[in-house]
Design a protein around this nucleic acid. Structure first.
Lengths: 125, 125
DNA sequence: GTAAAAGTTGACGTTGACGTCAAAGGCAAG
DNA sequence: CTTGCCTTTGACGTCAACGTCAACTTTTAC
């Protein structure tokens, strides 16, 4: 597959794919004329990369992680790192849940007059 | 309260507080000498702002939203906007859950040899 | 063969939420 | 009054994940 096909299939720009390659997140072979050629599973890989970005991981973290994912060789440090990232995602999800709940409270109160919103739960002295 | 106290209490920098004011997210009165003075509930407000930032809302969206939250006056457009943001947060949470599950699968497979990781669920030919 | 479409490298631009530095002034203590 | 910390405005810096433009080459369609 050429870069445009992969980009369309994965829902990203060609610029993003070149950037990922520069960050060593993906690789490609080249045609006789120098154009990038990808195997079909690059699409899944790119989607996976996007998911990791969305989860707040940096390019460097992903770059360190993906080779391990491919080879199946994971250092203990990497395991610790992954656990740490997992914990971060967990924490973030809980914060999001709390914020969503607040938004729900706000939406539920749109009928009620005079409601104050960061409806405090308990830090009273 | 002066700016340093609020910053310490809310766990942000004074720079952030001035930035929020510039973005019309918070307000302050001034002392005779021109220093910012905040009421104690500014701390909660700042925490709420941080939560909204963490949820992916932009300064402008928060700026449009917070006054409504204060006055209790919410336009139908704002309600729609809030519902939309809530949906976005929901979607993001689901993506995070999926990514976390993938990471769990990876962590669970660190013992197993030769496992390939974006463990595909179904597009096998 | 000849365009048009797609791809290449290189380099600068963008955006948002601040960090950071500089020069100056406010504020309570002694 | 002076010392020392806190605060003020202003302005430039940062960082990451790309966007965008330019000039050029490869591939494709006819």
């Amino acid at each position: 597959m050429r870069i445009g096909e992969v980009a369309a299939a994965a829902g990203v720009s060609t610029r993003a794919l070149r950037y990922y390659e520069q960050q060593r997140l993906i690789t490609s072979s080249r045609s006789a004329g120098g154009q990038r050629l990808y195997t079909p599973d690059a699409v899944q890989r790119v989607r996976w990369i996007q998911a990791l970005y969305a989860a707040g991981l940096s390019s460097q973290t992903i770059a360190e992680f993906l080779p391990c994912a491919h080879t199946g060789v994971v250092t203990p440090e990497m395991v610790a790192r992954l656990r740490s990232e997992r914990a971060r995602i967990d924490h973030h999800m809980r914060e999001l849940a709390a914020t969503r709940a607040q938004l729900d409270a706000v939406l539920a109160a749109t009928c009620e007059p005079g409601t104050v919103w960061p409806a405090d739960g308990g830090s009273g002295t």
